[in-house]
Design a binder for these strands. Structure first.
Lengths: 202, 202
DNA sequence: CGTGAGTTTGACCAGATGGTCAAATCAAGA
DNA sequence: TCTTGATTTGACCATCTGGTCAAACTCACG
């Protein structure tokens, strides 16, 4: 393992290659189902070489998850108290759906982790995530109290958005098995848009 | 492995114990993350004893999945063309939500499999499941054309029901991390009910 | 260039894991 | 009770897997 100076050109390149390879492998097979060798090969390195950059399989996984958590939560973070309620929410939903389309690996990485009880990110859930959600549901509640959107359970509103949007990334195989050639997102966007307009119209 | 006569008392008991144990273990850790030893211990058997009843880990998994698929799809199967449209759909949703509450292991078993690309049940998806969904969406389409419920994309309507209801089983940890002590289903039921009433009212 | 830090690798290890097998034990009907 | 098929198990095996290590190699810079 290199010293703690500024990373060299090679270090930057290889670390990035490893994390990208790890995202491919972990999101497709889960933590336990992935092997260090797979990740190394995918990154174009030998196993010992990979372990020169990260001390263990677990360390790669942790680095990946914590590095992506911010990206993953950014859309909710951007929900703006000062904006137009309906537009803010619909724009949040659109961004989430777009992330399912463009970052399905990231979605499945978290899905894999969550469905197995989140053994490695439990803390982030009950701290950072909970705090963010509490903060944003407070805004939703306020909008509801002001009559700007319909009164619904704010936490379940958030859950429903997560469920509906991430479904298309996480259960992609199933969706495609049923839709055939039709692009899932083509129909999903207007469907979800309509759904929330009807639900939230005051 | 026993002859192909009628199963003995012991065979019935042990096979059932193995499948129940396998459901616990596979749903919590996924296929690759589960070990035969874990399942055997959970079933109260030694590993070789377990392998006397099922020829391999894969065979247990397959038996489990195919045995549960019918249970899992029963509510959709029961969607009745002759019933009242809104009531039929809402009752389907209620049953799905109840299954997430009462059979979360089953939900997570399928979720684990699907999120990893369904390597072991791909056929069932694009055949049995697709056929069932095609059949039922035809009914939905008809109801829409008759003006009994609002016009929405019928496939995405089904997807949304799956996503919203199974979310509470599959991502249970996350939901509980955010809701704290509050019972998730307490708030989920009225929320989802309202959501679909508003969406589908003609 | 030459040198020292940074990088890469072949060989290797220990433990986990899926699966086998022959021998021992048990259960139920004749 | 005796016999035969069903059941159970300890010992074992081959492979996979995460991880180590010393030696070899490469690169940047004085």
């Amino acid at each position: 393992m290199p010293k703690d100076r500024a990373p060299t050109r090679i270090q930057k390149k290889n670390r990035a290659a490893i994390l990208d390879a790890a995202l491919n492998v972990f999101s497709a097979h889960g933590f336990r189902g992935s092997t260090v060798d797979q990740i190394a090969t995918e990154a174009g390195l030998s196993k010992p070489n990979l372990l020169y950059y990260f001390p263990s399989k677990e360390a790669i996984h942790t680095a990946l998850l914590s590095g992506l958590l911010d990206v993953w939560l950014a859309p909710l973070h951007d929900l703006d108290e000062a904006g137009d309620p309906m537009e803010e929410i619909l724009s949040y939903i659109r961004r989430k759906l777009q992330m399912s389309r463009e970052l399905p690996r990231e979605s499945r990485l978290f899905a894999n982790e969550l469905v197995q009880g989140a053994p490695r990110i439990h803390d982030a859930l009950s701290q950072d995530l909970k705090q963010l959600v509490d903060e944003k549901t407070a805004i939703l509640k306020q909008w509801m109290d002001e009559g700007k959107i319909a009164q619904v359970h704010p936490y379940h509103l958030i859950f429903s958005i997560w469920a509906l949007t991430q479904h298309y990334a996480d259960f992609d195989v199933q969706v495609r098995a049923i839709l055939g050639d039709e692009d899932p997102f083509e129909g999903a966007e207007p469907f979800i848009d309509t759904l929330y307009r009807k639900l939230l119209s005051p």
